[in-house]
Computed example of a mutant assay.
Amino acid sequence: MRGSLVGTAITLAAGTLLTAAMTTAAASTATTAGAKQASPPPVLVDCQWRRDYRPVDFILACGDGNSRLSGLQWKHWNAEGATAVGVNMVNDCKPYCAAGTFRYYQVTVRLDRPQAWKKDPNVQHFTRMSLTYADARPEGYKQVMTYPLWD
């Protein structure tokens, strides 16, 4: 009888160890899958190489600041793209930029084409921006202007 009890105890211990190992493996797989889904959304990189998420303002003309986005209200921002509405403030540079007047144009902003950022390959950033002007637009601009974003 004693041999039978020892055999039963060994069988139960082995079953318990096997169950614990399988539970640990399943938890590890679930954590890994959750980490992939929880990766942060792409960012928008600004003129000073800072990453930003849903910025309210964004400078388009980094050299002189004569074109900027302001009052951005983001409708969505995910791994594929982002969309906002706001104002494009553009200096008309008449008679020259220092004496020019900033004009305000309603725009829809779209970000897309996320890629790994060269400065930090673990970070995805948007590489293209499109501006769609609602009505009026700056002289020489098309209704939709598309710009590559810096890396």
Rank of each mutant, 00 (worst) to 15 (best):
1 M>N: 12
2 R>I: 12
4 S>R: 13
5 L>C: 05
6 V>P: 01
8 T>G: 09
10 I>E: 12
10 I>N: 08
12 L>K: 10
12 L>I: 14
12 L>C: 12
13 A>T: 11
15 G>Q: 07
15 G>N: 11
18 L>V: 07
18 L>M: 10
19 T>E: 01
19 T>N: 08
20 A>L: 14
20 A>F: 04
21 A>N: 09
22 M>S: 13
22 M>F: 09
25 A>D: 11
26 A>P: 01
28 S>C: 04
29 T>S: 14
29 T>N: 14
30 A>P: 03
31 T>L: 15
31 T>D: 13
33 A>P: 04
34 G>I: 07
35 A>N: 14
37 Q>W: 05
37 Q>E: 14
38 A>D: 15
39 S>M: 14
39 S>T: 14
40 P>G: 05
40 P>T: 11
41 P>C: 04
42 P>K: 08
43 V>D: 00
45 V>D: 01
45 V>N: 03
46 D>F: 02
46 D>N: 15
46 D>I: 02
47 C>H: 07
47 C>T: 10
48 Q>V: 13
49 W>S: 10
52 D>F: 00
52 D>R: 04
54 R>Q: 15
54 R>T: 11
54 R>W: 04
54 R>A: 12
59 I>M: 13
60 L>R: 06
62 C>D: 13
63 G>K: 15
64 D>L: 12
64 D>G: 05
68 R>M: 06
68 R>A: 04
70 S>N: 06
73 Q>R: 03
73 Q>S: 06
74 W>V: 00
74 W>R: 01
76 H>S: 10
77 W>Y: 13
77 W>P: 00
80 E>V: 03
80 E>W: 03
81 G>M: 04
83 T>P: 00
83 T>N: 01
84 A>H: 00
85 V>W: 00
88 N>W: 01
89 M>I: 07
90 V>F: 09
90 V>Q: 05
91 N>D: 11
91 N>H: 08
91 N>A: 08
92 D>S: 06
93 C>S: 13
93 C>N: 13
97 C>K: 13
97 C>V: 11
97 C>A: 14
100 G>Y: 03
101 T>P: 03
101 T>M: 09
102 F>N: 08
103 R>Y: 09
106 Q>T: 04
106 Q>P: 02
107 V>M: 04
108 T>G: 02
110 R>Q: 13
111 L>H: 00
111 L>P: 00
112 D>Q: 12
113 R>L: 07
114 P>R: 07
118 K>Y: 07
119 K>C: 03
121 P>Y: 05
122 N>L: 09
122 N>Q: 15
123 V>H: 05
125 H>C: 08
128 R>V: 11
129 M>T: 03
130 S>Y: 02
131 L>H: 02
131 L>D: 02
132 T>F: 00
133 Y>K: 01
134 A>P: 05
136 A>M: 10
137 R>S: 03
137 R>Y: 09
141 Y>A: 15
143 Q>N: 15
143 Q>G: 11
144 V>W: 09
145 M>H: 07
149 L>F: 06
150 W>F: 08
